[in-house]
Simulated assay, not measured.
Amino acid sequence: MPIKSKIWTKRIVLFYRENLMLGIGDPLTITLLLSAATFAGFVDSIIGGGGLILIPALLLGLPSLPPSAALGTNKTAAVCGTLLAAITYQRKIPTPLTQLLSLGIPAILFSALGALATLKIDANILRPIILFAIIIIGLFLIFKPEFGKDDFDYPISKRHLLLFLIIISAIGFYDGFFGPGTGMFLVLALSGIGSQSFLKATSFAKVINTATNIGALFIFAIHGSILWKLAIPLAIANMAGSFLGSHLVLARGTRLIRAAMLVLIFVLVIKLGLQELGIS
């Protein structure tokens, strides 16, 4: 066996042993969680929704883990994966720095406020509203197949920028407070208001989504809701999935994003619908 392979094998074994000693989980559970984090990063880099994979995996794999710790640990992985996807997209499809800063900073602040709100408000009150909105979005995409295909490249006026600011601040708050489908909402907002193709909107959205993740992560971190020993390897796995997903999107383009968006809508409707009925 090559020397490098032996070194990496020892590191993996050491990681498993350290987690077992800390009582985090058995080797099979950790392996499954790393796999879930990789798949979550892959899905998240395409259209978002990685939390729908990793958060349930954390709660099922580690039943004693508090929900707040599952959310914080997931956010740690999501920040790293989304940041890598944002860098990958921006290299190919750059967005003006002034737009990124003017919208990214409010996204961080409002996401932090949303995360703080989770400590005081029951997130269940949002579920029927979000469920209704997602169904409407799904029907819109089905009956408007041309939406998001073309990039008209209109200059963003001050009025558009103000509207972006309001909507992205609201989505940032939603991401910190509730979360599912944030990436999709960002892509739709940027496509609808800015007349951008799904591909260009995705590049922009990943930067904003990174900002919303950072805002929420900060709140989870200061409240001690992150299991760092597990969060760091999950973040690495998430980045691996994100790398694969973002490069696949750049190769396949808008059609892949649209298909992924419809699948995510279907999954969200089923998940939120079951929760609303008290089944899941």
Rank of each mutant, 00 (worst) to 15 (best):
F39N: 06
G41C: 03
V43H: 00
I46F: 04
G48R: 04
G49I: 01
G49R: 03
G49C: 02
G50V: 11
G51K: 03
G51P: 06
L52V: 02
L54W: 05
I55K: 07
P56V: 06
A57M: 11
L58I: 10
L58Y: 11
L59E: 13
L60I: 13
L62Y: 08
S64P: 12
P66Y: 04
S68W: 02
S68R: 08
S68T: 06
A69W: 03
A69M: 09
A70D: 02
L71E: 02
L71G: 05
G72I: 01
T73A: 10
T73Y: 02
N74K: 04
K75S: 14
K75I: 15
T76G: 15
A77N: 07
A78R: 10
A78Q: 13
C80K: 01
G81I: 11
L83E: 00
L83R: 02
L83V: 14
A85I: 12
A85R: 12
T88K: 14
Q90G: 05
R91V: 00
K92M: 07
I93C: 04
T98A: 15
T98R: 15
Q99F: 15
Q99L: 15
L101K: 12
L101D: 10
S102F: 05
L103G: 04
L103S: 05
G104A: 06
G104W: 01
P106I: 01
I108M: 14
F110D: 05
A112V: 06
L116D: 04
A117L: 13
K120Q: 14
I121W: 08
D122Y: 09
D122P: 14
D122L: 09
N124P: 15
I125S: 04
I125F: 13
L126K: 13
R127A: 05
R127L: 06
P128G: 13
I129W: 05
I129G: 11
F132G: 01
A133E: 02
I136Y: 12
I137A: 15
G138C: 08
L139V: 12
F140V: 02
L141C: 03
L141V: 04
F143L: 13
F143V: 06
K144A: 01
D150H: 11
D150F: 11
D151I: 03
D151L: 09
F152P: 00
F152G: 00
Y154I: 15
Y154H: 09
Y154W: 09
I156G: 05
I156L: 13
S157T: 14
K158I: 06
L163K: 01
L163H: 01
L163V: 05
F164L: 06
L165S: 12
I166D: 02
I168K: 02
I168E: 02
